[in-house]
């Protein structure tokens, strides 16, 4: 278990970068042209860190995650840039080499366990599969390990569950099984794509606690993709906010929640129903997230949603600026952004 000092000092302490993403660009082909769903994203993940990636739907969070493990069909997707893991660039790897990393060094937890699990395979066999490909354990040892794993993720009767099929389990149990598969080979990196979105709050709390406990054991780095800022505040060490394919703000979790800068981040935080502002109106962001095909290539992508800010206040080609150590904000428009009457400003 992590103690409080450890958590708070986490982003200062561990400096071992295990994953480095440089200028990643993932483009999908729509008709005859390619559109960038992930546009020039650079990130790094350290050991024992939880990096949360937040944003609304359509901002490219999941595309970023699936790009890291190379799940895109090369026929209609172009991935360029670098994803450096253990000295090799994942983007350039062949399928065979990728398979050695996926499930072994990088575990992936999908949002919807019902469609991610094979309905025709017993739970035990599905967990065993990755052990079969990635370890030298014999069958007996594998079976034993499967039961250990199920026990580890808090399933009460591992022997029975190992013989069941995915439809026989509840949502929370299925998500636990997904996690068991992801951690089977003790990965260095875990990517969790909305792991608790489909679950009830009590189960959500259990699953998140479980993820952190497992992390404390294995020192893995976790990339947590979510749209729920509450979840982020509960578990993340560092947060990257994505908008329209770009990272627009990245900071430690305390910094992001206490001192958010980018208009998008501030508006998002202000649109959460909160106790102190029970009867007040919620902040609404004008407009919608632009679709891929309508994305403007130049200028600040958030500008259409804050039209009252003068064009000259935006950068021509917005870059990420480091405004305090570890806190990056894209574009300069945040300096001129205020809420109406600055009612939300005081407590933010």
């Amino acid at each position: 278990m992590k103690t409080s000092e450890e958590v708070l000092a986490n982003n200062l302490k561990s400096s071992n970068e295990i994953l480095k993403i440089n200028h990643l660009r993932t483009s999908f082909r729509i008709k005859d042209s390619y559109y960038d769903a992930v546009d020039d994203v650079s990130l790094s993940l350290k050991e024992n860190e939880v990096l949360a990636i937040v944003g609304e739907s359509g901002c490219g969070k999941s595309t970023l995650a699936t790009s890291i493990v190379g799940l895109h069909n090369p026929l209609n997707t172009k991935v360029t840039g670098e994803i450096l893991y253990n000295g090799s660039n994942i983007v350039k790897l062949k399928e065979d080499d990728l398979n050695k990393i996926r499930g072994n060094d990088i575990g992936f937890i999908f949002q919807d366990p019902l469609s991610a699990l094979n309905p025709l395979m017993r739970i035990g066999d599905q967990i065993e599969e990755s052990l079969f490909f990635h370890t030298k354990l014999d069958e007996q040892q594998r079976k034993k390990r499967v039961l250990e794993l199920l026990d580890q993720v808090g399933i009460i009767n591992p022997k029975r569950v190992a013989r069941q099929f995915s439809h026989q389990l509840s949502g929370g149990m299925r998500q636990r099984v997904m996690i068991a598969i992801a951690i089977a080979c003790k990965p260095k990196i875990m990517i969790a794509d909305e792991p608790t979105t489909a679950l009830d709050v009590t189960i959500q709390a259990q699953i998140l606690d479980l993820l952190l406990d497992l992390q404390a054991e294995t020192n893995a780095g976790i990339i947590l993709i979510t749209h729920d800022l509450g979840v982020v505040a509960e578990v993340a060490d560092r947060v990257a906010v994505m908008y329209a394919g770009q990272i627009i703000e990245i900071a430690s979790v305390q910094e992001l929640f206490n001192n958010p800068k980018h208009p998008y981040t501030r508006s998002l935080l202000n649109s959460i129903p909160q106790v102190e502002r029970e009867s007040e109106k919620l902040e609404v962001i004008q407009g919608i997230v632009p679709t891929l095909t309508k994305l403007s290539k130049h200028g600040c992508r958030f500008s259409p949603r804050i039209p009252w800010i003068d064009e000259s206040k935006h950068e021509k080609e917005p870059q990420l600026h480091e405004i305090s150590p570890g806190h990056f904000v894209r574009c300069t428009c945040w300096k001129n952004f205020h809420f109406d009457g600055e009612k939300g400003g005081s407590h933010l």
């Binding site: 709050v201 009590t202 509450g230 979840v231 505040a233 509960e234 979790v253 909160q274």
Partner: peptide, 20 residues
């Protein structure tokens, strides 16, 4: 149920975890 609601105050999350 109430203890399981995520809160957007990262400072107090360990207290919340213990309480939970």
């Amino acid at each position: 149920l109430l203890s399981a609601i995520p809160n957007i105050a990262p400072e107090s999350r360990l207290e919340r975890k213990h309480k939970r």
